[in-house]
Nucleic acid binder design. Structure first.
Length: 491
RNA sequence: CGGGGUGUAGCACAGUCCGGUAGUGUACCUGGUUUGGGACCAGGGGGUCGUAGGUUCGAAUCCUGCCACCCCGACCA
């Protein structure tokens, strides 16, 4: 049997790239740093979108859409924001092409230069806050709770399918509030929504925390994040939620009249997750045989493969399958009956394994005789025969089991790869030999953080939320610290 | 963007050093036998050798620029 993808042990990063391509998720495009998301990959993203969208609406948000292009002057209105994004912006300077007189083909028409250049949005705070200025006059207009599903462009130096691409798909929530407390609570609420989504749907355990000053979003007062651990021991930031304070309100002059009749600046938040979640999903669960998808996000939850010799046999199988399929569909389970006669069963087994379909059912002559069928689990590779009667309930309970098994496995891996370091030497040794999450004391300064980053390549992933107060000494400087922070090498 | 590597059929590669009619495996098409873990036999189609120039009677092969991808850095969600 030809091996479809290299193993994780051989070359983790090659494994990832090959898996993404061979499983039909995405491929590189003719445009530098941009990917083509293929139908199977996109259908997983759609499942993520659908669920997140429900969760956003349930927390009172509405969808809207703002322009792809942002006038250059907008970007520079918030000082930190410009600094953060200026280096990676794509810029539109002209609006017309023409045929060159000297036969050089299509050229940019120099007469069609834009008065003001347009930036292809790297994120939409500026254009959205410029709009909010007109939408908000009174406390009665608040809170304003908006989300947008969009593509953004950040001109990255080094790109990788899903993990870092020049163009990526995401959602960005942008909310405006009358009080600081309300904005902070919105920021935290959305962080919880992300953590819930990651754990319940992606089967991905995450750590919630707040970023250190140097890792903060450009223009935010506080950046909250969820951090997940990948199988190679590196951390991946899976979502961020920013408390913007009044920074953008100041920059775009967004004021409202409060209940007391006084004018005040609006408080803001923004929050987002991107197609990077696809990368997290792939790297967290998959194995050397291919993808392993949590049932809650699998586009196909059950695939049924007939095994037959003659047409009549297939017909007989198809009749049985039809019944099972209909009742599964009525339970909300997605089923594919792959009765193509252009591929052999063995080929199909390997194919759906590569694509991470949680349950595979094989049904052939043996089963017709005995009234059974064979179910194979993708997560454990376990194969077992079950009576055909009442199989729908069995399938439903297996899907639930798989979902929690995948989560538990990831949770166990995270626990096994989470350490505490008390000295800098210990810290370095852990990162060198094992990777993973390392909790250690830090004195809270940017200098120490930078020194650690330079010397070990590890960064502070977050200062974890929750009451794990513990007085100690910074492992580098020995200065006092009140709590351990989370370090890791990161994507 | 700096260092290293690689671009030859859909995919994986050989051929490049030493210039002389573009190959192998797989995938694809046709026919037959097969079908409970990526089938077998026979026949067939497909490549301006990443791209743009240059050297040469002649370039996949030598020289130069550019582009893309991979690994290691810097940057980053």
């Amino acid at each position: 049997m030809p091996k479809a993808i290299p193993s994780r042990a051989e070359d983790y990063s090659l494994w990832y790239n090959e898996l993404v391509k061979k499983a039909g998720l995405a491929e590189n495009s003719p445009v530098r740093g941009c990917m083509i998301i293929k139908p199977y990959g996109f259908s997983i993203w759609e499942k993520m979108q659908q669920q997140l969208d429900i969760m956003f609406k349930n927390t009172g948000h509405e969808n809207a859409y703002f322009p792809l292009f942002i006038p250059k002057s907008y970007i520079s209105k918030e000082a930190d924001h410009v600094e953060g994004f200026a280096k990676e912006c794509a810029v539109v300077t002209h609006y017309r092409l023409k045929n060159d007189k000297n036969g050089k083909g299509l050229v940019v028409d120099p007469d069609a230069k834009l008065e003001e250049e347009l930036i292809v949005r790297p994120t939409s705070e500026t254009v959205i806050w410029d709009t909010y200025k007109d939408w908000i006059q009174s406390y009665r207009d608040l809170p304003l709770l908006i989300n947008q599903w969009a593509n953004v462009v950040r001109w990255e130096m080094r790109t990788r399918l899903f993990l870092r691409t020049a163009e990526f798909l995401w959602q960005e929530g942008h909310t405006a509030h009358a009080t600081q407390a309300e904005a902070v609570s919105e920021t935290k609420q959305m962080l919880d929504v992300y953590a819930d989504f990651a754990e319940k749907y992606m089967a991905l355990p995450v750590i919630k925390g707040v970023k250190s000053e140097s890792e903060r979003f450009a223009g935010a007062v506080d950046t909250y994040c969820i951090e997940a651990l990948m199988q190679d021991g590196k951390a991946l930031q899976a979502g961020t939620s920013h408390f913007l304070g009044q920074n953008f309100a100041k920059a775009f002059n967004v004021k409202f009249t409060n209940k007391e009749g006084k004018e005040d600046l609006v408080w803001g938040t923004s929050w987002g997750v991107s197609t990077r979640l696809m990368g997290a999903l792939i790297m967290a669960h998959s194995d050397d045989n291919g993808l392993v998808l949590p049932p809650n996000l699998a586009p196909i939850q059950v695939v049924i493969i007939p095994i037959y010799k003659e047409e009549e046999q297939l017909e007989e199988i198809a009749q049985k399958v039809d019944k099972i399929r209909n009742s599964l569909i009525s339970k909300g389970i997605s089923v594919k009956f792959d009765c193509r006669d252009t591929h052999k069963p063995g080929w199909k087994f390997a194919e759906y394994e590569l694509k991470g379909v949680p349950l595979r059912i094989a049904i052939g002559p043996k089963d017709l005789d005995s009234g059974t069928l064979e179910i194979a689990r993708r997560d454990t590779k376990e194969k077992k025969s079950y009576p055909m009667d009442g199989i729908e309930d069995k399938i439903q309970s297996l899907l639930t089991k798989i979902q929690s098994n995948i989560y538990n496995k990831a949770q166990h891996f995270k626990e096994q790869n989470t350490y505490q370091a008390d000295t800098y030497a210990e810290f370095k040794a852990l990162l060198e030999n094992k990777g993973g999450f390392v909790y250690a004391h830090w004195d809270g300064t940017r200098e120490t953080e930078n020194k650690i980053k330079e010397e070990t390549k590890a960064t502070i992933r977050c200062i974890p939320l929750g009451g794990n107060e513990e007085s100690g000494k910074c492992m580098v400087t020995g200065n006092p610290s009140t709590k351990r922070v989370l370090f890791a090498k990161a994507y």
